[in-house]
Design a protein around this nucleic acid. Structure first.
Length: 581
RNA sequence: CGGGGUGUAGCGCAGUCUGGUAGCGCAUCUGGUUUGGGACCAGAGGGUCGGGGGUUCGAAUCCCUCCACCCCGACCA
C-alpha cells in the first residue's frame, strides 16, 4: 500500500475526551472515530488491525473443529421471553420495534438464537458433540461506556456455543477451548492470564476469564504463581487468618466515642489497632428485613460472596439510614454485635478474633473487649470478604499464622477481560427445548457451553500493553502493516524513487504487508506517523546510506537503527518478518 | 440512575463573570523558500457559538428548558 492512496488520519494533539492511553492512541493513529457514546467508526488503519485479530481467532476456532455461522444482529422478543431474559436482562438490552410494533432486540449475545437453531437442526445423539461460532457485532447498552472501544456499546465479538450429550463431553470441549484461547492470546503477543471466574446466577461447574494484564484494567485479579492460582477478586478465596481463637482476656467495657463514626476514627480515638475492630454492615435479608454482616475493620465486603449466603437477599441491598435506625436503633457509625436484634453472619476472620471493638448500637458509644460466645452469641462464620494483597493463598494452607513467605501470598493485579469460557449446562437448552434423541429414542436436553472473545477490545488491550511516548508498538501479528518504507526525498531524487519502488514491489511479491510512504512530506512527519501508528519494521531509504550501498533498518521496539546491505535487505528482512508471524 | 463537569472552525483552546461587528494555535488550500525526527514566509477558505424559548435597541455572554458528551459512584456479560 502506498501512503498517498491510503487514509492516514493521524493527529498531533490528544483529543480531550480520551482518558486511557489506548483510546488516545487509537484516535491519534487514525484507527477509530467516535460516532456516539460507545459507538465508533473503524477507519482503514484500524480495520486492518481488527482483521488481524479476527484472522487469528478464526484460525484457532477452526482448528478446534467449531463451525462458523452468522446469526442475526436483530432478534425477535419471543426468543428472549422464552428464555426468561426479556425480563431479566434489564437496560443493557437494546429493545426496538418494527413497523408492526413487534418487539425485537439488538443481540447482546446469541444463546437464544443458536440454541433454537441447533435444537431444530440436530436431532440425533450421533450428531453430538457439535460446536458453532461467529464473529459479529454485538450491542450492549452499557450504562457508562468508556475508554473508547475497551468498553463500547457496539463491539465486535467472537462467540461460540457447544452442544453435548453429557458433562464429560462438555468438559472436553471446554478444555479444548481453554487451550485454543491460550493459543490465540499467545499468538497475538499478549501478556495474559486465565483466571477462575464467578459463575453468577447461572451456576454451573466451570468458568474462566482470560485477562490481559494492564494497569488500566477494570477488573482486579488475585494470583499466586507458586500455587498456580489465579482468580477474579470477585470470587478469590484466601486462607483464614489466625488459628484457634484466643481466649477472652479483657472485660467488656463501654466507651464514649463522640462523633467517631468510621473505623479509622475509632482506631485513632481509642488508640487501637485496626485488626482489633470489626465493622457491622446491614443489608436486606432474604426472608427478614435486616441481616448484619460482620468483617474485621481492615477488610472489605465482597458483595458477590455475601449474596451467596441463603439469609442474604440477592442482589445485595444496603439498608438506608432510616432502615438502619429502625433495625438497631442507632446510626451506621455505631452498629455492633452486642445485643443486636437481627441475624449475624461473620466473616471467617472476624469470627476468629477476641477482645475486639465494635459499636454499641447506641450513637456515639462503642464497646471494647468484646468476645464472641461471652458478650454476644457465637456467630455463623462465612467467607464474606474480598481478598487483598498479601493474604495467604488458600492453596498454601488453610490458616494464615503469619509463618509463610511472600511467594505463598496473593498478589493483586489489574486485568482487562478479553475472553470468557463458561459451562452452561441446560440453562438455555431446557427453556428453548433443545432436545435430541438418545440411543433409546428418548428425548434428552442438550448440555451447552458458551465461549466469548472480545475482538475489538483486544485491539485496545494490546495497546495498553505495548506503547511508548511516541505511540503504539504493535505485536507483529496485530500490526496494520508489517513494514514501512520511509524515503528521504522520494519526490526529489530519481534514485530514491526507483529504489523505493523496487523494494516495495519486491516485499509485496513476497507477501509482506508493506506501506510505502510516498507522501511529499518532510522526514520528521513520516517518522512521527510511522512511530505513532506502530509499524514494527522500518526501512529508511536516503541518499546518505544508499551511497555506501546500505539501507537503514529500525525495529519499532528498538532504540537504535542498524544498517543493512542494500543488496540482500529484501531476503533478510522478509525472512525476519515471516519468522515472527 | 445519583453526583460533578463541558459544549465556540476538523483538533486543542480563549472570549461568558462585567451584553456592543467571533478570536488564537494546530490542521486544510494557494504561492514561494525548505527537506534525516511533527519547517519558514506571505495569503486564503472554514462558525446555526449544542437545540428551542425568553429578557434586551442589541445575547456566545443574562434567564428558562431540552439535548449531547466526559469524569466519579452505583450497577453489570
Amino acid at each position: 500500500m502506498r501512503s498517498s492512496k491510503f487514509l492516514i488520519a493521524t493527529v498531533k494533539e490528544t483529543p480531550a475526551d480520551a482518558e486511557v492511553i489506548s483510546h488516545q492512541l487509537m484516535l491519534r493513529a487514525g484507527m477509530i472515530r467516535k460516532v456516539a457514546a460507545g459507538v465508533y467508526n473503524w477507519l482503514p488503519m484500524g480495520l486492518r488491525t481488527l482483521k488481524k485479530v479476527e484472522k487469528v481467532v478464526r484460525e484457532e476456532m477452526d482448528r478446534t473443529g467449531s463451525q462458523e455461522v452468522l446469526l442475526p444482529a436483530v432478534q425477535p422478543a419471543e426468543l428472549w421471553q422464552q428464555s426468561g431474559r426479556w425480563e431479566m436482562y434489564g437496560g443493557e438490552l437494546l429493545r426496538l420495534q418494527d413497523r408492526h410494533d413487534r418487539d425485537f432486540c439488538f443481540g447482546p449475545t446469541h444463546e437464544e438464537v443458536i440454541t433454537t437453531l441447533i435444537g431444530n437442526e440436530i436431532r440425533s445423539y450421533k450428531q453430538l458433540p457439535a460446536s458453532f461460532y461467529q464473529i459479529q457485532t454485538k450491542f450492549r447498552d452499557e450504562r457508562r461506556p468508556r475508554f473508547g472501544v475497551m468498553r463500547a456499546r457496539e463491539f465486535l465479538m467472537k462467540d461460540a456455543y457447544s452442544f453435548h450429550r453429557d458433562q464429560e463431553s462438555l468438559q472436553e470441549s471446554y478444555d479444548q477451548m481453554f487451550t485454543a484461547y491460550s493459543t490465540v492470546f499467545t499468538r497475538l503477543g499478549l501478556h495474559f492470564r486465565p483466571v477462575e471466574a464467578d459463575t453468577g446466577s447461572i451456576g454451573g461447574s466451570g468458568s474462566h476469564e482470560f485477562h490481559v494484564l494492564a494497569q488500566s484494567g477494570e477488573d482486579a485479579i488475585a494470583t499466586c504463581d507458586k500455587h498456580d492460582y489465579a482468580a477474579n477478586v470477585e470470587l478469590a478465596v484466601a486462607a483464614q487468618i489466625g488459628g484457634e481463637r484466643a481466649a477472652p482476656s479483657e472485660q467488656l467495657s463501654k466507651q464514649d466515642t463522640p462523633g467517631q463514626k468510621t473505623i479509622a476514627a475509632i482506631c485513632d480515638y481509642l488508640k487501637a489497632p485496626v485488626e482489633k475492630t470489626i465493622k457491622t454492615l446491614l443489608v436486606k435479608g432474604a426472608e427478614v428485613d435486616a441481616v448484619a454482616l460482620v468483617l474485621r475493620g481492615d477488610h472489605e465486603l465482597n458483595e458477590l460472596k455475601a449474596e451467596k449466603h441463603p439469609l442474604v437477599a440477592a442482589p445485595l441491598q444496603w439498608l438506608d439510614e432510616d432502615e438502619v435506625m429502625q433495625a438497631v436503633g442507632c446510626g451506621v457509625g455505631s452498629i455492633g454485635t452486642v445485643n443486636i436484634p437481627i441475624p449475624v453472619i461473620a466473616d471467617r476472620s472476624a469470627a476468629n478474633i477476641s477482645d475486639f471493638i465494635c459499636g454499641a448500637n447506641e450513637d456515639d458509644v462503642h464497646y471494647t473487649g468484646v468476645n464472641w460466645g461471652r458478650d454476644c452469641p457465637e456467630p455463623e462464620s462465612f467467607d464474606l470478604r474480598s481478598v487483598k494483597q498479601g493474604d495467604l493463598c488458600s492453596r498454601a494452607g488453610d490458616v494464615d499464622l503469619g509463618e509463610q513467605g511472600d511467594e505463598d501470598r496473593l498478589k493483586i493485579m489489574r486485568g482487562i477481560e478479553v475472553g470468557h469460557i463458561f459451562q452452561l449446562g441446560t440453562k438455555y437448552s431446557e427453556p428453548l427445548n433443545a432436545n435430541y434423541l438418545d440411543q433409546n429414542g428418548k428425548a434428552t436436553t442438550m448440555i451447552m457451553g458458551t465461549y466469548g472473545i472480545g475482538i475489538s477490545r483486544i485491539v485496545a488491550a494490546a495497546i495498553e500493553q505495548n506503547y511508548d511516548d511516541r505511540g503504539i508498538i504493535w505485536p507483529t501479528n496485530m500490526a496494520p502493516f508489517e513494514l514501512v518504507i520511509t524515503p528521504i526525498g522520494y519526490h526529489k531524487s530519481e534514485l530514491i524513487k526507483r529504489t523505493c519502488d523496487r523494494l516495495y514491489a519486491a516485499f509485496s511479491d513476497l507477501g509482506i504487508e508493506v506501506l510505502l510512504d510516498d507522501r511529499n512530506e518532510r522526514p520528521g512527519i513520516m517518522f512521527a506517523d510511522a512511530d505513532l501508528i506502530g509499524i514494527p519494521h522500518r526501512l529508511v531509504v536516503g541518499e546518505k546510506s544508499l551511497a555506501n550501498g546500505k539501507l537503514e533498518y529500525k525495529e519499532r521496539s528498538a532504540d537504535e537503527a542498524k544498517e543493512f546491505d542494500a543488496e540482500d535487505v529484501v531476503d533478510l528482512l522478509a525472512a525476519r518478518i515471516t519468522a515472527a508471524r
